[in-house]
Design a protein around this nucleic acid. Structure first.
Lengths: 205, 205
DNA sequence: GTACTAGCGGTAATCCAGGGA
DNA sequence: ATCCCTGGATTACCGCTAGTA
């Protein structure tokens, strides 16, 4: 095996391929990133490199390309993320501001939700006047008159039968905190639902 | 300078540090990722490595850590992206489903958007009857009568002055595809906006 | 099953350009 | 300018795995 004019003792590195060698291999790489033995031998002959060096170069080049591509995707992902976040914010605001084509007022969904939530919190934090402990100590009775007095913005006892039904159900609940919370939630939701007709009255045709 | 018991001819690489050497350096790395000359010399003495090798190891370790961190951030970004996309979809649907308390029907925003989009696509795909090329070949004229005939669901020429104004603007546009698309978009949006009063009529009090 | 091979991930060892005392 | 160090990119190579004859 007559050597290719540079039989270095193996493991001894010859630093940096020349610009020309790199350009040639780069050009080949764009057409064929994974040359076979023949192509590599041909290239090594043309460029004055050992076949093994050519093999190494292509291997390293492939990994380099891979990492660069990943980096590119990375920045792209960052941008997309930014945009999605902005879109999300816009949608969130749009939901609060959304106007309904059936009438020309804004939907009050958000307002209702916020108000109901506040009411629930306040109801939960209240004690004896609103939530009366029964004599046996096992149940808590909801004082509806007190409720109407405390939250006067609600139309007093609307005639909606759904509301009456539900409110009667939540009037007596067990002491269990979860049930209590659910009862409050039900009442708050009823109130929110009951706003429907109220708002409709406000609407101008 | 009496050598450190391994004066290899320089440039001859000794493969792979031992598990012990790596563990020690790794432990040191967590406390101090960038040891100075003294610390490196001390480590090299303890581990039977050349100071230069220790230096190399720490340098390579730093870059490795960096790439690993990048990779980690990468996957994290992917997940976040996925989640944001899902949220976005949910918001979009919520916008379409949002019901308005001023009336008892669902908002027709989505329907309008879909219909407008379909109309835009159909308009874009149409040729001569709807989009007349002018004699000089440089401008495309929008045939409004043909439009009304083709899409009869639109109330013929509503008296809304905004619509008239805008439609006149988009009647004559240059051949430029971007402008053309914008004109179509404008017309479609006008149509969508013009639906407002129409829906109001449908609403039951 | 077995021997051979290419490709890949990981790692050691540099080279190079640039920053700071 | 001088010297040392660091990060980024390169070159060389080992060990493992999968595909193939």
């Amino acid at each position: 095996m007559e050597a290719g004019q540079d039989p270095r003792p193996k493991n001894m590195r010859r630093q940096r391929h020349t610009q020309h060698q790199i350009q040639e291999m780069e050009a080949f790489f764009t057409k064929c990133p994974r040359p076979n033995v023949k192509q590599r031998k041909e290239l090594s002959r043309e460029l004055g490199l050992e076949p093994l060096q050519v093999k190494f170069w292509f291997q390293n080049k492939r990994t380099q390309m891979k990492t660069r591509h990943e980096h590119h995707v990375h920045t792209q992902l960052r941008n997309e993320n930014e945009k999605l976040r902005a879109d999300n914010m816009m949608y969130r605001e749009a939901l609060g501001r959304a106007s309904c084509p059936n009438c020309d007022g804004p939907t009050a969904i958000r307002e209702i939700a916020v108000a109901a939530m506040e009411e629930l919190i306040r109801m939960a934090q209240m004690g004896e006047p609103l939530w009366m402990t029964s004599l046996d100590g096992n149940t808590t009775v909801f004082n509806e008159d007190e409720y109407i007095r405390t939250f006067p913005r609600v139309a007093p006892k609307p005639n909606n039968h759904f509301k009456c039904e539900a409110s009667r159900e939540s009037t007596v609940v067990t002491m269990n905190h979860i049930n209590l919370a659910m009862a409050e939630l039900a009442y708050g939701l009823e109130w929110a639902l009951a706003q429907g007709p109220f708002f409709i009255k406000k609407k101008k045709i």
